Computed example of a mutant assay.
Amino acid sequence: MRQTKLEDFLELERRIKEEVDKSREKDKILFQQAKLASLGEMLGNISHQWRQPLMEMNSIFLPIEAKIILGKKVKNSEILEAIEKLNIITKFMSDTIDDFRDFFSNDKEKIKFNLLEQINSIVNIISTGLKAHNIKLDILIKKNPNLFGYKNEFSQVLINLINNAKDELISRNIEDPYIKISIFEEDESVVVTVEDNAGGIKVNPIDTIFEPFFTYQKQNGSGIGLFMSKLIIEKNMEGKLKAYNKNSGAFFEIKIPKE
């Protein structure tokens, strides 16, 4: 009898382990799909980021080229000024590449990182895409804390929330569109909120948006962005990600325990 109970217990333990392993494997697959979905959006962002600098680089040397063609003298100061401007632009483009490379690198371990520095890196990636649609981005900082976790995964969450807000603002033709990011501390937590004026989340119950493969009136959406965002914050960073409708739009709240 005891032997039978032991065998039953061992079989139950084996099944539990098997199901846990299956669940982890599904999470890995979904996370990879989320990364691939983000890649398409990031390529769009980098094309926006580089288009303006490339145009500026072209315009820098146009006056010099015109003088050479017309046989006019080009001053050394003009050439040095053009080179200085070129250096500034190429540094900006190089920094953008670093931001994208960091974003897609695999986080191997949790590290301490500064929240504002990471947000500035995110803004460097997405700002031009927002400007192209006249979307105002406000960042309100009451505290500038450090976090402990997977910084690139955290960046992916913020970029996903901002891109979702951008898509809704564009698709709904919102007048004077804006996105606001707020950073502050509350008790023993660091809080980051992302809100917009796109009219709110028209899903009931609202937590449905965090279910895998759920999409709502969004073309070419994978339906895994918000699901993975919640997984990253709540499983990988031991925090909470919640969504509300507030004022004139959607309101996402990220709470992460202080280190």
Rank of each mutant, 00 (worst) to 15 (best):
R2M: 12
Q3S: 15
L6N: 12
L6A: 11
F9S: 12
E19D: 09
V20L: 13
K22G: 03
I29N: 06
F31T: 10
Q33N: 09
A34T: 00
M42K: 08
M42I: 05
R51C: 14
E56V: 08
E65F: 07
A66G: 01
K67R: 07
L70R: 11
K72I: 00
V74P: 05
K75I: 01
E78N: 09
E84K: 14
K85G: 07
L86R: 01
I89M: 03
T90G: 00
M93A: 06
D99H: 13
F103N: 04
F103W: 00
F104Q: 05
F104S: 03
I111Y: 00
N114C: 06
N124S: 14
S127Y: 09
K131D: 11
H133V: 08
N134K: 14
I135W: 08
D138I: 04
D138E: 15
P145W: 06
L147Y: 02
E153W: 06
V157Y: 02
L161K: 06
A165N: 09
I170P: 08
S171H: 09
N173C: 01
I174T: 15
K180Y: 01
I183E: 10
D187K: 15
V190H: 12
E195I: 00
E195M: 01
N197P: 08
V203E: 03
V203T: 00
I206H: 03
D207R: 05
F210T: 00
P212W: 02
T215F: 02
Q217A: 15
S222V: 10
G223C: 10
M228L: 13
S229F: 03
I233E: 06
N236T: 05
M237P: 06
G239I: 04
K240I: 11
Y244E: 15
S248Y: 04
I254P: 08
P257M: 09
